[in-house]
Design a protein around this nucleic acid. Structure first.
Lengths: 394, 394
DNA sequence: GACGTTAGTTACGGTAACTTACTAACAACG
DNA sequence: CGTTGTTAGTAAGTTACCGTAACTAACGTC
């Protein structure tokens, strides 16, 4: 490491510690940061001074906590930078703008059916919504734009390889977005929606390691190691949907046999429950609850998930599973079935209990996660953003 | 990061780059290190000077390569520090002492059946062999001792939880070893033998990501991400042996059903081939090759492995698989079967070919890996070893 | 033997972080 | 109401690391 990078590294450390503290609990002081980062007080003061001058951090009113001089609370600056999340889903397009503090500066959503033929329209709409968000946020400097898509994305150029839910194949999403004037000169990335959803979960479980399973159209997911999202070669790590749970079993929409999704995807469940294709994902659970064979269906879902989870836990040696999406509302019922299956097959249980937990169901975690991801460059390299913020308004 | 750590960090960087260069190809010069580490020549010179003075690095005779001043080749110092690997296996106990250059300073091995009742004897023998190694190496300062055991080890205190191959359960291995005078004051760690074997493989594939599968008594393995061994919560990540490949299938020795090991472990194969339990692991492949149903057996192994591999590849999103142990000699025959199964089930194939490769069969990779692991502290924190080496002898 | 080239060193300067010692602002106590 | 103790934050000076620029060293080539 070169000495010039040392400052950058420490700036990043301080800003990250500051953000972590202010999301979790009470804001933190310079002295507190010094303790957490193991840097000295003068060093932290200098770094904080730099961050405050650059409008990346703001000081609050001094707070007295018992004896001693009151601390000056530090928080990520509000309203100085704009991070933008976009979401393209089967029935809507949305855009969310947040600032460094995670505060929502603007939220735009349009409900519209997105299909293969309307791909261009959806992309145009996304650009338009993004334009509205930028305007409503007061034309702040934009950190980055991250687009959530329910499909597979080529890591190099942001092409959507396939998004079954949208009926998209080979859509050059990022390229098309960049062609719009609203996005001129911006940095745009696309990501799988499930992988972005998990970012919201990571915020609530800093530094933890867990498997994340999300039921939406298919079964998506992610692997989180020590608070960091595992990527894999193509950025697809944690795609549990096509884990084989029964060799030669039911045929999956992907053409393979015995995939988890052949048993517990939205479509598989809908068909099994004898429901029409007009039942929304959100209503699937409720529709199931009306049926007499509910327990049986829950049991089937639980055993299928349990097998996939057990294998994943064996390979990864983790002990925590977080259920999200339409799995979250039935997590309590699924838990005993999954637990039984996991305990039959997973090795990790030898060392202690496996935790099967429910996600703290945030509204639209994918969109929020996309915006959070768009914030990341600032925390990774604060130095690059010094001098590029809008001066504080209030 | 504190400024004092910067030096340590750069020392580590330089030493690691130096070691990497000298294992792979021709030794490297100060100028070469400067290029690789992106530090400047004067900085590298200063750091190298420190390492040379500390007897961690040694200079060779200048080598002229075309025009310009000849370079001074730098290599990790030989015979100044001792890293010790121990191995406790079903039929032998061994000890290997190497120096920073990876050169073998002493190798001791005793063939003896190790079982539950002879656990104490085996540990005594290990300590004795270690004493011989230290003596033969000339009482050099010992970096660390790492013990390879074919079983599960508690990460906190080095207890062997279970080692089916040795018939051990709950053996306080590290504690017992430390009680011997030969190991007084040394740092001792225990590790699973398969996880240590993979270190030898990592040396040959620096920075790569792959799944490692090793056939010995059971099917062990490891997951390597960007050249780093994945640990998991208990240090068991990559234990593929008990991946479920057929729910409700054959009963495994672990008591579960449908495990991979229930189909392709040494015992399972031996029984299937109708061989007695006097066939050594090393001879298993040869014994199989004499049978008329060889192709069928290979097919069964390949399909079983393929399923486990496909699921692991799906979850981890990796594209390379390395086969080792008794799987290595039949890797060429297994490859087409595994490939077919993987292509039927794994998603990664959509993005390109999955590579199924054979390990560069080193002799006794577990023991060698243990010694390599025992070397690691020096590369991680060279500063701590400055002033603690034995002065060069030759 | 002058020149170009590559390896490595020397001298110097900038910068970041640490040490020490201070001031600031409060509570508790008598 | 001052004194004392405690915690937050600042100021000044020092240390140490690394980078820059310019050098020397040791070769091959023309």
């Amino acid at each position: 490491m070169q000495s010039a990078h040392l400052r950058e590294h420490n700036l990043s450390t301080v800003l990250a510690a500051l953000a972590a503290a202010s999301t979790s609990a009470a804001p933190i002081s310079r002295a507190g940061l010094a303790k957490r980062t193991r840097l000295t007080k003068p060093t932290v003061s200098k770094l904080v001074e730099e961050l405050v001058n650059a409008s990346l951090v703001e000081e609050g009113e001094p707070i007295s906590a018992g004896a001693g001089r009151p601390m000056v609370p530090l928080t990520p600056a509000r309203g100085t930078l704009l991070a933008i999340g976009l979401e393209i889903a089967a029935d809507h397009v949305a855009c969310l703008g947040i600032d460094l503090a995670g505060e929502v500066l603007s939220h735009q959503i349009e409900y519209r059916k997105v299909t293969a033929s309307s791909a261009e329209d959806a992309i145009d709409l996304a650009a338009e919504l993004l334009g509205r968000v930028r305007a409503e946020a007061g034309d702040l400097p934009v950190v980055e734009v991250v687009v959530a898509v329910p499909g597979r994305i080529a890591p190099d150029d942001g092409r959507v390889l396939s998004a079954p839910n949208l009926d998209w194949t080979e859509v050059p999403l990022v390229g098309r977005l960049l062609a719009h004037p609203e996005l001129a000169g911006l940095s745009v990335r696309a990501q799988n929606d499930n992988r972005l959803s998990v970012l919201t979960e990571i915020d609530h479980r800093p530094g933890e390691s867990f498997i994340y399973l999300r039921g939406s159209t298919g079964i998506g997911g992610a692997v989180v190691l020590d608070g960091a999202l595992m990527t894999g070669t193509h950025g697809w790590a944690g795609e549990f949907g096509h884990t084989v749970i029964e060799p030669g079993g039911a045929t999956c929409r992907c053409g393979r046999q015995g995939c988890l999704e052949a048993y517990v995807s939205y479509h598989a469940l809908r068909e099994r429950a004898g429901l029409g294709d007009d039942v929304l994902i959100e209503d699937l659970v409720e529709a199931l609850s009306l049926r007499s064979d509910r327990a049986e269906v829950i049991g089937m879902i639980g055993r299928s998930l349990g097998l996939a989870i057990a294998n994943a836990l064996n390979v990864l040696d983790l002990t925590t599973v977080v259920l999200s999406g339409y799995l979250a509302p039935i997590a309590d019922e699924l838990e005993p079935v999954i637990r039984e299956t996991v305990e039959q097959h997973a090795l990790a249980v030898e060392a202690g209990p496996v935790l099967i937990e429910r996600s703290d169901g945030h509204a639209d975690p994918a969109l929020r996660g996309a915006a959070r991801a768009a914030l990341q460059p600032v925390f990774n390299a604060p130095g690059a953003w010094i001098g590029r913020t809008s001066p504080r308004s209030h």
